[in-house]
Design a protein around this nucleic acid. Structure first.
Length: 100
DNA sequence: GACTTGACTAGAC
DNA sequence: AGTCTAGCCAAGT
């Protein structure tokens, strides 16, 4: 199974109202230094994958080449009840605690 | 199969 | 507190 497919499978498990970080996803896949590659994988994720629940290590939305998607991500997260404080989501409260 | 490209990160200044 | 840097790694070309 490709790395990308593994990322998508894992992202689908993030519950509504919670978020995970790129580095966290990488670590869960036993590739602790592949955070960047996680971003690349999420860039092309299939429909149905809650890609918006993945944020950077500070709990904020990462910059893209084209900023359009950033607002979309924020809106989707707020629709799930998450609130931004000072430009970021407080991870201590809303980060997904994966079992594995 | 050799570059290039980032939706990354931790650390240094 | 804001920027910069150096590693990193899978995908795309």
């Amino acid at each position: 199974m490709s790395f990308g497919a593994a990322v998508h499978r894992l992202v689908r498990r993030i519950p509504r109202g919670q978020v995970a970080t790129y580095g966290q996803i990488a670590a869960l896949l036993r590739r602790p230094r592949a955070a960047r590659a996680v971003g690349a994988a999420i860039r092309a994720c299939p429909a149905g994958v809650p890609w918006h629940r993945v944020v950077n290590a500070r709990g904020s939305i990462s910059r893209r080449r084209r900023a359009a998607g950033m607002l979309t991500q924020r809106i989707l997260l707020e629709q799930e009840g998450l609130r931004f404080r000072r430009g970021h989501i407080p991870l201590e409260r809303f980060q997904w605690r994966a079992v594995k």
